[in-house]
């Protein structure tokens, strides 16, 4: 059974969103996603300043046997990239909710309501 946290928003493509403050959020991949991938060996992330479009591809995570495209759960602008993951992508396996990928300034905070809550996402990743 994969781990899920309260208070996060989840997407059907297995990303999570956590509100830090105001319109600023962190984005990562879920514990379920990392468990399916296996040890992550590479993360391909956009540069700071990149515009994210909901449901559009923004990067990829790679293990030795699989690669998975990342789809943005939100519309917004990348304001910070988690540089720690470049050298140590396996941190995603250690704790998928600590190892955030991007810090993003949302276009619209209200849009988060369209994402899944813990219970609905749990059904999806069973």
């Amino acid at each position: 059974m994969s781990k899920l946290l309260d208070g996060l928003y989840y997407s059907e493509s297995h990303e999570w969103v956590k509100v830090v403050e105001g319109n600023t959020v962190l984005i990562g991949i879920t514990d379920f996603a990392q468990s399916q991938l296996g040890t992550v060996v590479f993360v391909d992330l956009p540069e700071t300043g990149t515009k994210l479009v909901k449901d559009a591809e923004f990067g990829a995570v790679e293990s030795v046997k699989a690669a998975s495209d990342l789809f943005s759960p939100v519309d917004g602008t990348v304001i910070e990239v988690n540089e720690d993951l470049i050298g140590e992508p396996e941190k995603i396996n250690e704790d998928a909710y600590e190892a955030w990928l991007l810090k993003v300034e949302l276009d619209d905070l209200e849009a988060l309501k369209d994402l899944l809550g813990k219970v609905d996402y749990a059904k999806l990743s069973e």
Partner: peptide
């Protein structure tokens, strides 16, 4: 063989 996640047998049309 390494970096195989780029290749057709894993990535298929991508």
């Amino acid at each position: 063989l390494t970096l195989q996640a780029r290749e057709q047998h894993i990535r298929r049309e991508k």
